[in-house]
Amino acid sequence: MRAHRTPIAGVLRIELDLTPNPDGWFKENFHREKLAELGMNVVQHNVAYFEEPGIVRGIHAEPWDKYLSPTSGRVFAAIVELRPGAAFGQVATFELGTADALYVPRGVGNSFCTLAPHTTYNFLVNEHWSPERVAVDLFDPELAIAWPDLPLRYTERDAANPSLAELRALLTA
């Protein structure tokens, strides 16, 4: 496991060792001590499976840290700084395969788009799920996220998220 800083404070891109074997591959996706060094004490492991490319989720900032990694397929991840401060609204994007992971601290918005059929997406969190979250419009022109050139499918809930300007006003009110 090798962690690399990204343009957004606290967000780490992580290279995982993927070891080929005669049947496919093996990776150590979770190692408690290694994640604890990043400041994460995992309490829940969630898995989401997506049959088709172009499925989009987010942009959500939850009250927990996340460790994200696909175990099959590929995803395009868009990460947005939603914590108050000068970097508010900063965007970083990543393409993640099975040998990649991201560590996303609480308060930072995260979203993804499946790039391949049969994508399985794992995320570990350090707090149990709650409905509390901050969200922003996936297609806000101020964010200017260059989403993959695919037919995109997303939920009505995500489509109704506020713009970055509206969120900024809500957070500073």
Rank of each mutant, 00 (worst) to 15 (best):
S130Y: 07
Y67C: 07
F139M: 12
L124C: 09
G97I: 02
E166V: 08
W129Q: 08
V75N: 03
T114C: 08
R2N: 15
D140G: 06
D17T: 09
G89D: 00
D100C: 08
E52P: 00
G85Y: 00
G97C: 04
L124H: 10
V108Y: 01
H31A: 02
D100N: 11
L138E: 11
R57Y: 10
S130M: 11
E52H: 03
A135Y: 10
D100T: 10
A169K: 14
E51Y: 11
W25A: 13
T19F: 02
S111I: 04
N122E: 11
L152M: 12
T6N: 05
F94P: 01
E52A: 07
T114R: 05
R13Y: 15
A159S: 10
S69W: 01
N126L: 06
H45E: 03
G39Q: 08
L68Y: 07
F94N: 01
E132V: 12
V104C: 04
P22K: 06
P20V: 07
T71R: 00
R157Q: 14
A9E: 15
T172H: 12
A3Y: 13
T19D: 02
I145F: 05
L16P: 01
R106F: 00
G24M: 11
E166N: 03
R83W: 00
L35C: 02
A144N: 15
F88P: 02
L35I: 04
A159N: 05
P63W: 09
A101K: 05
P105M: 01
L170K: 15
I79F: 03
L38N: 09
H45Q: 03
V75I: 15
V43A: 00
Y67W: 12
L171E: 13
N41H: 10
P70L: 04
R133P: 04
A144V: 13
V91W: 04
P148V: 00
N126C: 04
D137P: 06
S163N: 06
T172V: 12
P7T: 13
A61R: 06
E127Y: 07
S130T: 14
A159L: 10
N122W: 07
L152A: 10
W25V: 10
I55N: 00
G39W: 04
R133D: 12
R153L: 13
